[in-house]
């Protein structure tokens, strides 16, 4: 069972990445001490209070948030690529990132508290996709998928215009840098409560994707074939869109817009486990999580200032993607 073995390796890789993320930082905590501090509540051996505070209050919440966001974006990307039968699709295909971005920058403009900014981003992300879906339904075309994607582009462009408007209105010394930073993606300032608030929607979104994994994979053959094979296409497609939107909106709401992961990770996974969605999904979650944990570690430790995550994922993602393309169509087909 080669695919099973690879999943185990990827899971171990994620744990290793999380250990690295816990060790590295301005205050270096040796791996052994990380592990000792982690098990301290169980063993009863008290750890150093400084290590305890840094690990549990600062570093672990950020590592967990990075893992959640990375896994979520990769899962959404893998799902949309299968659903739309197009390997160049990413989680923001239906405008969720632009919609969430608009809500969040509006929150920054209105000087709302952080939790409200995140909440507003989450809600506008969801609303955007509902509008896109309703628009596609109202247009009643023979080619439902094409109309859906085009409606996503239209509404996404509108949200993008809204973001530009907010940037023009924003205070250039105070709010504009915050907006720009948010649009480039960052996990700085993540608190324990953020990791807790983002986990439930991501898990709620992942559950139906995992449960329907086989039928979602069959959808990749196209609507007619999937129906003839016994799949209720409209229902499964609706579930995938709702779940992937929930996941993406939740992730974007705490991390800002981070590109490339949803597009690239499924491509890196397919040569390992094959194109079957029931294998691509778990493998993407594990690899996406490990990838963003490592990228975020780099973002907060490579330079004196925090590097925006979107910059790093683009810098790392673009060459990797070119390399994948150069390996030939085999990557996806």
């Amino acid at each position: 069972m080669r695919a099973g073995l690879i999943l185990v390796v990827l899971a171990l890789g994620l744990l290793a990445a999380m250990l690295v993320g816990s060790v590295v930082g301005p205050y270096r905590i040796p791996p052994g001490e990380v592990l000792r501090t982690l098990v301290a509540p169980v063993t009863g051996t008290p750890a150093s209070p400084t290590t305890d505070t840094i690990l549990f209050q600062i570093r672990l919440p950020r590592v967990l948030a990075a893992a959640l966001v990375g896994g979520a974006l990769a899962a959404a990307g893998a799902s949309y690529q299968t659903l739309f039968r197009n390997p160049l699709v990413s989680p923001d295909i239906l405008g969720v990132s632009a919609g969430a971005g608009f809500g969040a920058v509006l929150g920054i403009l209105l000087s709302l508290p952080v939790i409200a900014i995140q909440g507003l981003g989450f809600v506008t992300g969801l609303i955007t996709v509902v509008v896109v879906y309703a628009l596609a339904r109202a247009l009643r075309s023979q080619n439902e998928v094409l109309v859906l994607v085009l409606a996503g582009i239209v509404v996404g462009a509108l949200a993008g215009a809204g973001i530009s408007l907010v940037k023009i209105l924003a205070d250039p010394y105070n709010q504009l840098p915050a907006i720009t930073f948010w649009l480039l993606g960052s996990l700085s300032g993540i608190k324990v409560s953020d990791a807790w608030s983002v986990a439930p929607p991501i898990i709620v979104g992942l559950v139906p994707l995992v449960l329907l994994r086989w039928r979602i994979g069959v959808l990749s053959l196209g609507d007619d074939e999937a129906r003839a094979l016994g799949v209720n296409v409209a229902f499964v497609r609706g579930v995938v869109i709702a779940a992937a939107t929930l996941i993406t909106a939740a992730a974007v709401s705490i991390s800002g817009v981070i590109g490339w992961i949803g597009l690239m990770i499924p491509h890196m996974v397919r040569p390992l486990v094959g194109p079957r969605y029931d294998r691509v999904l778990p493998a993407s979650v594990l690899m996406g999580a490990a990838f963003l944990v490592l990228v975020d570690t780099l973002a907060r430790s490579a330079a004196r200032i925090e590097i925006p995550l979107g910059l790093l994922t683009a810098l790392i993602g673009a060459p990797i993607f070119v390399w994948l393309l150069a390996r030939g169509r085999r990557v996806w087909s």
């Binding site: 039968r85 197009n86 390997p87 990749s220 094959g274 194109p275 996806w332």
Partner: peptide
């Protein structure tokens, strides 16, 4: 020709 590289068994 399909978009994804399924094996015959898949």
């Amino acid at each position: 020709v399909m978009e994804f590289a399924y094996t015959v068994l898949d």
